[in-house]
Amino acid sequence: MAGSKEIRTKIKSVENTRKITKAMEMVAASKMRKAQERMRQARPYAEKIRNVAAHLSYAKSEYKHPFLVKKDQVKNIGLIVVTSDKGLCGGLNTNVLRMSVNQMKQWESQGKKIQVSALGNKGFGFMTRINANVKSHITGLGDTPHVEKLIGAIKVMLDAYINHEIDQLFICYTKFINTMKQEPVVDQLLPLAGEKIGSPEGPWDYIYEPDAQMVIDQLLTRYIESLIYHGVTENMASEQSARMVAMKSASDNAKNVIDELKLIYNKARQAAITKEISEIVGGAAAVA
């Protein structure tokens, strides 16, 4: 019975691998549900703040915030790259990083300089490897992202924008479309324009307390933060569903391998039995 023991060991090891991938699949599925829930919960705040921002930009306020002013010449660009902290989630991070690298190449060919802020371990590692100008990074966001954790890295970019170190700010993350489909996207954050501002229901001005400038500053910073937080939650939901799909295909694959190995093992076993029987029969014939 040559090799039957080796085959048995192999089957055992593949079975163990399958147990792990199966468990990871189930963990990812439950985390994905939670991440989707968080995405949903963050929506009212983003909508409300968007409404207020719309009012502010259209209200006949004499103060124009730098976030709302379009710059004539764009020389420096800030890019926030959102990735996951952990691997084993299919092509998720690869797709995001490929997209951001393509975008960066394009900007560089136009003679623009790029500053990067990396949210997530994978993106940070990659950006340092390709020698990008990483201004700030945050890793270890965990399963529940908190706005507090993001503030620091975001403020570095917002300060750079206010101090004219960057003229535009973009975010690159994976958009969650559904469980099976996630897409990397590059979105412009600053200056705030287009649909991100929307239009108010009616033209009126507010009573500002203590004064318009302070309130608008505070509000717009919150708005950008909520947009980035939204990107991070979408990315997290995408990560979990990508991991779930990847682990599901790994489990399926392991099952196929086990089936094949079992077939080989049984064939080897049968061959050994047949051989033994023919030997016994042959031996008996010789004696008789």
Binding site: V147, I151, G152
Partner: peptide, 26 residues
């Protein structure tokens, strides 16, 4: 009436501190 509540205590110094921390880490 809409109250846009912060999830954490915010202040100029604190934000600055966090920004510094992120910068420093980088």
């Amino acid at each position: 009436i809409t109250v846009l509540a912060d999830t954490a205590i915010r202040g100029h110094d604190l934000d600055e501190a966090q920004a510094n921390a992120a910068k420093k880490a980088a």
